[in-house]
Write a protein that binds this DNA or RNA. Structure first.
Lengths: 110, 110
DNA sequence: CTCATAATGTCAATAATTCTAACATAGCGT
DNA sequence: ACGCTATGTTAGAATTATTGACATTATGAG
């Protein structure tokens, strides 16, 4: 049971650092682009502080990533049947969409 | 050029409220699920405060949406309620998914 | 190896933001 | 009008972030 070292459970700070390094930026440079002190960056990357909405948004922009990835490490794309459902959903009236969502909610709860 | 009232420039609070209402929740109930006071919710929805990482994450979870949508209004090409539906769909069993698609088909045909 | 320099980590105090509780307002049905 | 429910608002307490100074850790030259 070697179990290497799964990185799916990374932390927010770890992702920030990884992205910053990938962009060949020093904490100093990075801080400059975000208009904060370098020590702030250091704390962000060590998950001490800084996880504020505004920051996250700017970080995502500067480092060309998405908020979803930065914060929860997720990415989202649709596969075949999911896409089909989306098409149908979009073809529905506002009211029917509501019904559909409610139905989904009920089913998902079982 | 009537320009209906398309809300592309919605605010975070507006999205929270819209999603909460779509889920048929009162501020009280919503607050209970998030373990915060109900006045906190009121402030979030009026963009006074509350835009903290942790909150946003829980909100997204409870309301079945994504952080990206909550915070910046976008996620991939799915908008809020669409993403919510996808989440629910994914939470369903294979059989329930089938039911959902059939339902969607029927509704879409009206 | 030693020194210099660059990069990053840490801490204390300050500044900024949020949270809760209590009160105020709006809306609805009887 | 009255009661009831849902939501808005305010003040102060509590939490959290930011900064600046200092400590630590590379890295490379000589």
């Amino acid at each position: 049971m070697a179990a290497k070292k799964q990185p799916p459970t990374e932390t927010v700070g770890a992702r920030i650092r990884a992205l910053r390094l990938a962009a060949n930026l020093t904490q100093d440079e990075f801080a400059a682009q975000l208009n904060v002190s370098r020590s702030a960056i250091a704390q962000w990357e060590t998950d001490r502080a800084g996880q504020v909405r505004d920051n996250m948004e700017r970080i995502a922009k500067v480092l060309n990533t998405s908020l979803g990835y930065l914060v929860s490490g997720e990415t989202g794309s649709l596969v075949g049947d999911e896409l089909a459902l989306m098409r149908l959903y979009r073809a529905c009236s506002t009211e029917d969409r509501r019904i559909l969502v409610l139905t989904a909610r009920r089913l998902a709860r079982s």
